[in-house]
Amino acid sequence: MTTKPNKDTAGGVLNGLALIAMIVSLYMVFLYVPTEATMGDVQRIFYFHVPLAWVSFFGFFLVFVFSVGYLVRANKKWDNLAASSAEIGVLYCTLVLVTGPIWAKPVWGVWWTWDPRLTLTLVLWLIYIAYLMLRHYMVDPERKATFSAVLGVVGFIDVPLVYFSIRWWRTQHPQPVMAGGEDSGLEDPMVFTLVACVVAFMLLFFALLRHRLRHQAFREELDELHDRLEHEGHFQ
C-alpha cells in the first residue's frame, strides 16, 4: 500500500478550485462590493470573519461526526479525519478571534465584549485547543484515537449548553451600549460577496483537509518502513 506522491489529480483540482475561489473572493471583497455606509472600509473584514466562523463551526461538527464514526467502527481513517478537521477548525477559529476585535474596535469602540457569540467562539476554541493538546500528550496511537474521539463527542454535545448558558447569563448582566448593530440589512452585492467567501473558505478547508490526510498517510508509511528496516537489522 504505497501512496504515490505525484499522482493526486483530485487533490490538484481541489487546490486549483480553492485558489481560483480565493482570487475571486478577494476581488469581490476589495473591488466589487460597495463600501458599507456607516462602518466604512473596516466592514470588509466581515467577509473573512463570518465565513471563517461558519466553516470553523462546521469543522467542529465534522470532528463530532468522525469521532462517533471512530467510536462505532474503530477505523484509523476516522481518527485521522477527526484530528485533521480539529486542526483546521482551530486554525479558522483563531482567525475568527483575531479578525473579530479588529472589526469591533472601530465599530463598537471596544476590542472585546462578552457577547454570546464571541464568548461561545472563545469557549469552543478552548475546548478544541484542549483536544489538540490531549492528542499531543498521548503516546499509544489507539488510545489516543479513542480518547480524543470521546472528547470530540463530549465537546460537541456541550456546544448548545454553553450557548444557552452564556445567552441567558448575558440577558441578566447589563452590557455596554454598542454603536451600530451587527444585524443591519445586507445589500445584494454584499450577500454575493459573502457567499463567494463562504465557498472559498469551504474549498480551502477541504483542500487543507486533503493535504493533512495525505501527510498523515505518508507519515504512517514512513513509520512502517522504519519499523521494517529496524526489524531487518539495518540500524545497528
Binding site: 478552548l126 475546548i127 490531549l134 454553553v162 448558558s165 452564556i166
Partner: peptide
C-alpha cells in the same frame, strides 16, 4: 480538558 466543558 475539564474547565471549558464545564462552563455551563
Amino acid at each position: 480538558l475539564l474547565l471549558p466543558v464545564t462552563v455551563p
